[in-house]
């Protein structure tokens, strides 16, 4: 993988890699609060069926995951655990922040124990706003992320702006 790290990938190879990565995302569910239930509904329930998008929601550990979905309120006590989880994931890794709480603190913007946004600790690729976002919104977030992965240039990974689902 030296090619990837040096950023000198031949174009067809990048394309091939991106297409394969796009449809084989293992998503780790980091459910924290109310949003976790909507995430569960989106990822686990037969009605929304996330697997048709080429996303597998059941990795046994973050070490096998490509994408983590932080859904819910991040508290200061939780921060070290989230940081550690993120560091355990292998590159290339993506983060979806689901819900107002994970985006910015949400209804607890003035609380003494809530972290005002998970992006203070880890870089976030997709923000899905809402309190809670509907499962469809999370699915759209995943689709947008797939779009981005499709056109991604490995070397440029962190330079783009985050996606916001509207």
């Amino acid at each position: 993988m030296g090619l990837v790290e040096s950023g000198k990938m031949p174009k067809p190879l990048t394309n091939l890699l991106n297409i394969s990565r796009r449809y084989s995302i293992w998503i780790f569910q980091w459910g924290l609060a109310c949003c976790a239930i909507e995430m569960g509904a989106a990822l686990g329930s037969p009605r929304y069926d996330v697997m048709r998008l080429g996303v597998i929601p059941l990795p046994a550990s973050p070490r096998q995951a490509d994408l983590v979905c932080i859904s819910g309120t991040v508290t200061d006590k939780m921060v070290p655990a989230i940081r550690r989880l993120y560091d355990q994931m292998p590159d290339p890794k993506y983060v979806i922040s689901m819900g107002s709480c994970a985006n910015c603190g949400g209804p607890y913007w003035d609380s003494y124990s809530v972290t005002k946004g998970v992006d203070q600790i880890i870089p976030v690729d997709v923000y899905v706003p809402g309190c809670p976002p509907r499962p469809e919104a999370l699915l759209e977030g995943i689709v947008l992320l797939q779009e981005r992965i499709r056109h991604e240039d490995m070397a440029e990974r962190w330079k783009g702006d985050p996606i916001v689902v509207t």
């Binding site: 003035d110 003494y112 124990s113």
Partner: peptide
């Protein structure tokens, strides 16, 4: 509830909500 290094007693009225 709070992490071990938290200072102050949040429910006292003179504990300010900094945000």
């Amino acid at each position: 509830y709070l992490p071990g290094d938290f200072e102050g007693h949040p429910l006292r009225k003179d504990f300010p909500l900094l945000a």
